[in-house]
Design a protein around this nucleic acid. Structure first.
Lengths: 244, 244
DNA sequence: CGTTTTCTTGAGCTGCCTCAACGGCCGTGG
DNA sequence: CCACGGCCGTTGAGGCAGCTCAAGAAAACG
């Protein structure tokens, strides 16, 4: 492993939490300047090349990771050896929360493009969140939000049909892009059809067909991994309408 | 609402955390006597009759609940008005973690039998977990465990066939019963076939048919809600075998 | 430039859903 | 005590959404 570790020091200070443009999305939400600097002091940076793992299932857990740049997937290998994608994560989101329960990571986290994460050693984070009330609070909210997110996915998997799932997936991606200041109507998928299918409980052919269908109906533009949302309301209508 | 609130005082001390037989399953894991008593002081008890809600989606969040006696389900009403069950909870398990993210409960929690919970006001719990290191740690583990649990369900919903899901469901219930000192081979389902189906992403008829099939194959005994596991290994084999 | 991966599309199959009918259990009230 | 109605569970028959298998085209990559 030749991954680069960059401690945060005076000469790369502009990459520290206190200067980070993702401050408001990340664990640092609402911290005072003083506290931000304390957080800075425990964060290191690490670059992950596309296709490389940030951690693997079974690895000892010792840090959480905030995505600074890039895009990740998390997945689990089932006993039968097939991969199930459990999530896609983008800048500002936290990876590794599943590891706390057993001091061991239960899933693999893999970069889907060249990425960079902020490494937050968990024992230090615990100490610091012990010191800083609003950090503790924010940390709890992050975990809770993860639980809520997983439950939405359970609803999707448990009660939606294929095209609804895919519409929901596109809308969700679009919203998260917007939140980060990117275009919400035009973006590049970092994952394959197969990974989308795995995430949504569908086969890759079904994903491909749904994209083609949406394309034919003028809802989206599709060119391989490049997606344009042409009729967001139309997509949203698919969710309410089909299932009543 | 005529639900009974019982503060814990000297005269019902044997129901306090320090005396609770679920201590090792609950948030109180690993606390020293001193700390246990601190936890006692913030816990109140509340009884919930069968069919009654502990909380509803949209209710303001202000406490977590540890189940002392009984059995609950959590569910969400989708926009189209259909109920999706997100979990079944039994003694020692914690309800309400989803509420932390937005200070609002996102799901309904309903008693499936006459039950009793320990009410832990969240702001007080935060203060106390600030004081007691091992409580903070245990709390984080509980949240993380919830995330891991949700992810297993995602795998179940995303990649298993109907009979595998139901086998997994029965095995899971059986293990949790065992952990609580009940028989792992014979128990009473507190939920309907429809609720099981909703939880597993199946229709109630499919659940019923799978039970009948398992029954015919000698894997389980079924008499309405009374279940006997006759061949646990056979059930487990269904999981590995079918999907390879 | 060749190799590999990814995507698309078609045709046929099947597991689960839908719709429907019936039987058992339980609480309520006569 | 029995009669009744409402809920819950079981079972059957038929249909369809999404899976499987297959082949070919288009990108991506070294």
């Amino acid at each position: 492993m030749d991954q680069q570790i960059i401690p945060i020091t005076a000469n790369n200070m502009r990459t520290a939490c206190s200067q980070c443009n993702l401050r408001e999305l990340c664990l640092a939400v609402g911290l005072e300047d003083d506290d931000l600097h304390k957080l800075d002091s425990l964060v290191a940076r690490r670059k992950i090349k596309r296709g490389q793992p940030l951690y693997r299932a079974g690895d000892p857990f010792n840090a959480l990771y905030a995505i600074k740049i890039g895009f990740f997937k998390t997945d689990i290998l089932t006993e039968e050896g097939l991969e199930q994608v459990t999530g896609f994560q983008m800048a500002g989101e936290i990876l590794g929360l599943d590891g706390i329960s057993n001091d061991t990571h239960v899933c693999n986290a893999t970069a889907l493009e060249d990425s960079e994460v902020c490494v937050m050693p968990y024992d230090q984070l615990e100490v610091l969140s012990h010191e800083i009330r609003s950090l503790q609070r924010e940390f709890h909210k992050f975990m809770s939000r993860e639980i809520v997110r997983d439950q939405s996915l359970m609803i999707l998997l448990g009660s939606m049909r294929a095209e609804e799932r895919i519409a929901a997936f596109l809308i969700n991606l679009s919203q998260r892009m917007k939140l980060r200041g990117y275009s919400s109507s035009e973006f590049h998928l970092r994952m394959t059809r197969e990974e989308i299918g795995s995430y949504l409980g569908l086969k890759l052919e079904t994903v491909s067909r749904a994209f083609s269908r949406f394309h034919d109906e003028g809802l989206i533009g599709v060119q391989q991994k490049h997606i344009r949302i042409l009729d967001g309301d139309g997509l949203r209508k698919l969710l309410d309408h089909n299932n009543c």
